[in-house]
Nucleic acid binder design. Structure first.
Length: 112
DNA sequence: TAGATGACTAATA
DNA sequence: CTATTAGCCATCT
């Protein structure tokens, strides 16, 4: 069981219409220092179609420039299709769309 | 083995 | 709000 597995597990739990950040995912796993490694996990082994990478954004609420499965436009369409509204700058309001794991009782489900 | 890189974040100015 | 600096750690060369 590796760090990557945990990352994918958490990302797959993100509900539609919500987004999460790398730091948040890392924190959920229990290792907030590895925010960057979360990015590596998604970049290195994206499990296309299985892990909703498009719901993971940085702390600015903007998508990372290196979106690797279809391009940023495809990602924006996916998020918009889920009800997320983009700002003029291409960012999203984390205050509004940030996923709150506490509501999903995730703490008990991470280590399945 | 060592140094550089990166889908990051927090602190500081 | 933005720009810069430092810390971080798995992976790459």
């Amino acid at each position: 069981m590796g760090f990557f597995e945990d990352v994918y597990r958490v990302v797959k739990m993100i509900p539609e219409g919500k987004v999460s950040t790398y730091g948040q995912i890392a924190s959920l796993i229990g290792q907030p220092r590895k925010a960057k490694i979360v990015g590596w996990a998604l970049h290195s082994n994206p499990y296309r179609g299985i892990v909703p990478c498009h719901r993971v954004v940085n702390r600015k609420g903007e998508l990372s420039g290196a979106f690797a499965f279809g391009g940023m436009e495809e990602q924006r369409k996916l998020l918009e299709a889920e009800g997320i509204v983009f700002n003029k700058d291409g960012t999203i309001d984390l205050e509004k769309y940030l996923w709150n794991p506490e509501l999903d009782n995730i703490s008990d489900n991470i280590f399945i």
